[in-house]
Write a protein that binds this DNA or RNA. Structure first.
Lengths: 124, 124
DNA sequence: CTGGATCCCAGCCGATACTG
DNA sequence: CAGTATCGGCTGGGATCCAG
């Protein structure tokens, strides 16, 4: 990884970014925005399992990071669109390689889990 | 991303893997193991801020996923070495691209945050 | 429609003590 | 050395109600 920073210590940029990447909901939102701007409630519906509170918080966080933009339209009622910024787009492209890994190695992980459980769980 | 799976719904492999990647400590451990096997207390010392409990839990989790192997040596006192499995190694290589993104775009994120804070926080 | 404000509980995580 | 066990505090996040 990087020799320049001490990844295992605090105050390391990689660790900082890791804290953001490590947000499952943020990644899911970023991914959902890849095909264009989406409105708040639309995100809420699409991303199954996210609460309105967490959605709101997460959006604010990634907006602060400059990963998404927030555009308000003075319609009645008001409309708000969230969209990927160029910076956000570079991140989703990077994250996509993770998704590829996931799909490719899912079976191996599942198999490992079953083997592990079979070897440890059987108190009988 | 993947058309075959609904990333935004539960029971999706990508989402499953995301739960693991989203574990900051797991990623840090995996990364630390890249240069070869490491013993428990050594990991504990190197990864600043992790508690023994969380280290133990996380190791067990990623061992179950088949990402690391656990080898016990019958020395006195006992020695345990954790090492990356081939599967784990492919994952760290993928994650490394994330680290590259982090280092490359850290400044942009930092700047975005400051701009955001300056635009929203200054009630004065 | 887009959130903010509250209440509240489950789970997480640190600290500590103990075992093989 | 390498953990497990237990307790307890803190907070993240769900549910609900309300506002612009």
């Amino acid at each position: 990884m990087s020799q320049a920073y001490d990844v295992y210590n605090d105050r390391c940029p990689t660790r900082m970014v890791l804290d953001r990447i490590a947000d499952k909901w943020a990644v899911l939102i970023l991914d959902r925005l890849q095909d264009g701007p989406v409105r708040f409630n639309h995100l809420r519906r699409d991303i199954h399992g996210i609460s309105q509170k967490v959605l709101s918080q997460t959006l604010k966080k990634i907006e602060r990071d400059g990963l998404v933009s927030r555009t308000v339209y003075a319609t009645v009622p008001v409309t708000v669109e969230y969209a990927l910024t160029p910076l956000g787009r570079t991140l989703t492209e990077t994250v996509r390689t993770l998704a590829h890994w996931a799909e490719k190695n899912m079976d191996a992980v599942l198999a490992a889990q079953q083997a592990y459980d079979a070897a440890t769980a059987p108190p009988r």
